[in-house]
Write a protein that binds this DNA or RNA. Structure first.
Length: 482
RNA sequence: CGGGGCGUAGCGCAGUCCGGUAGCGCGCCUGCUUUGGGAGCAGGAGGUCCCGGGUUCGAAUCCCGGCGCCCCGACCA
């Protein structure tokens, strides 16, 4: 470890803490190129776990993976008016290749709707070809003005799903199906509770009919958009002539959806569960769920202890626990404890001569509490239980924290007071006027994170807009956001 | 793009005001002793002082001009 000093605490400076945690855990590093980051093995391992889980869920819905090119003809972007308006400012464009100026500049994809639907136009002829359900795992590039490790980098990794359907109802159904997947992933894998809902028109994806999202609340009480899914309507189908012949023999435009989550989720994980010692990785996403630290003095002890540790390692791996044995010599056990805590490993087993003699190990949990002895026999099963408990506890703790920092039935006055304090999710009535929404954003820096789904709405529907007192058309959730 | 900060060893920094042998802590290498919550001692390696010009016998330091990065805001996954 490069740095032995204590981290800046979350209370002192959340932003400094966040950066230090990432460096300490060796999740990522700054690259020579502004706004770009290197994802180091510890960070990439988390992303791989995320990919695996999400990919399985997509495939259960019948989605297939494919790969589309990095470079997109510039003209493709002007085919859908809102889309070009939304993305033009942040495009990176390749103008030269092989030492010659290109006839048509090529855009490095910021997202792939245009190229994918241009291909769908070739592949879809009949309603029998629908739905067409594809996803790709790739990198994209957006020339962001200000960047932050994982949360907003110029280049980032993500998955983008793109589907085509026979009618609006099927597209809508599928977009919402994906929203459920995202929510399930956030809660069951990341242990991160999220609100689900619809974005207002001003926050909608450029080119979409409707955008739905999952929103998490970080420990500094700022909201983070963690995933979006869009019903694109027929906007792209019309721009790229994606048509099919219906069972009635008529020629129709398809209805599209697109949806994505990115490496931003790694940042979300840090900000949801990290503490002043570093990150806490939920067991289901941890690269190593358990690390074994051997303890010995003499050479004789070393042999005995390592032999026992190796045996435990084998048994745990066989029992499905992702385990690492830290055999490094010359590092005191305490130094290893600090290192693995910083890296967020959920469980740590200490194995010393006394433990070997007693047929036990000492278990320490990343989430705290006293160390406790566990018999070596049946250890894998015991640790699985420990991890289930920890996974559930992390989700519950995050949920409690979010609810403690949520306020309902706000008025303009109570809303302002709430923002003056710690902030968080503020539920209240909204008139539906984009001008009112913009004023609120300008004056408070808070935005409507979503128009929450039924499940998250307040028992009593608000009757008036919390800001302007005109009749409310819906309930909205405001927060300051990343 | 506005505001702030910073560029000196792998990392964190002092030295810059007031020009004169390039330093400290951590890390790294070797050896010995250590190892149940961040080990100790000894020896050692490691530098275009961000870049370019200028002033000077002499520049990390003074002058001029660039570049880069980080943080805070406006825009966004």
């Amino acid at each position: 470890m490069a740095d032995q000093k204590a981290l800046t605490t979350r209370a002192q400076d959340f932003s400094a803490w966040y950066n230090e945690v990432i460096m300490r855990a060796e999740l990522a590093d700054y690259s020579p190129v502004r706004g770009c980051m290197v994802i180091r093995p510890n960070g990439y391992a988390i992303w791989e776990q995320m990919q695996r889980a999400l990919d399985d869920m997509f495939k259960e819905l019948g989605v297939q993976n494919a790969y589309f090119p990095l470079l997109i003809p510039q003209s493709f972007f002007s085919k859908e008016a809102q889309h070009i308006d939304g993305f033009a400012p942040e495009l990176a464009i390749v103008t030269h290749g092989g030492g010659k100026e290109l006839e048509e500049p090529l855009v490095i994809r910021p997202t792939s709707e245009t190229i994918i639907y241009s291909m769908y136009a070739k592949w879809i002829q009949s309603y029998r070809d629908l739905p067409m359900l594809m996803n790709q795992w790739c990198n994209v590039l957006r020339w962001e003005m200000r960047t932050r490790l994982f949360l907003r980098t110029a280049e980032f990794l993500w998955q983008e799903g793109h589907t085509a359907h026979v009618d609006e109802a099927d597209a809508e159904r599928f977009a919402l199906e994906i929203l459920k997947v995202y929510r399930r992933f956030a809660e069951e894998w990341m242990a991160m509770p999220v609100l689900t809902g619809r974005k207002t028109d001003s926050e909608r994806f450029a080119g979409a009919l409707r955008t739905y999202c999952i929103e998490g609340l970080m420990q500094d009480n700022k909201a983070l958009q963690a995933g979006t899914t869009h019903n694109l309507g027929q906007n792209f189908a019309k721009a790229f002539q994606v048509t099919f012949q219906s069972d009635q023999g008529t020629l129709e435009y398809v209805w599209n959806t697109s949806w994505g989550v990115s490496t931003r989720l790694v940042g979300a994980l840090v900000m949801t569960h990290g503490d002043d010692a570093g990150i806490i990785t939920p067991p289901r996403l941890a690269q190593y769920q358990c690390v074994i630290v051997p303890i010995y003095k003499s050479d004789a002890e070393r042999v005995t202890v390592l032999e026992a540790a190796e045996r435990i390692l084998r048994e745990l791996r066989q029992g499905g626990v992702r385990t690492h044995l830290d055999k490094r010599d010359g590092l005191k056990p305490g130094a290893k404890y600090y290192e693995w805590e910083g890296r967020g490993v959920p469980l740590r087993l200490e194995v010393g001569p006394r433990d070997v003699a007693a047929g036990q190990v000492m278990l320490a949990r990343r989430t705290g509490g006293a160390k406790s002895p566990l018999p070596t026999a049946g250890l894998a099963r015991a640790l699985q239980t420990e991890m289930d408990v920890m996974q559930a506890a992390l989700l519950e703790a995050a949920r409690v924290r979010r609810e403690q920092h949520s306020i309902r039935g706000i008025t303009k006055a109570s809303f302002l007071e709430f923002l003056e304090g710690d902030g968080g999710f503020a539920y209240g009535g909204w008139c539906g006027d984009a001008a009112c929404e913009a004023t609120i954003k300008e004056e408070t820096k808070a935005t409507i994170r979503c128009l929450p789904d039924e499940e998250f709405r307040s028992p009593e529907a608000p009757r008036s807009c919390m800001w302007c007192d005109r009749p409310a058309v819906t309930e909205a959730v405001w927060a300051r956001a990343y």
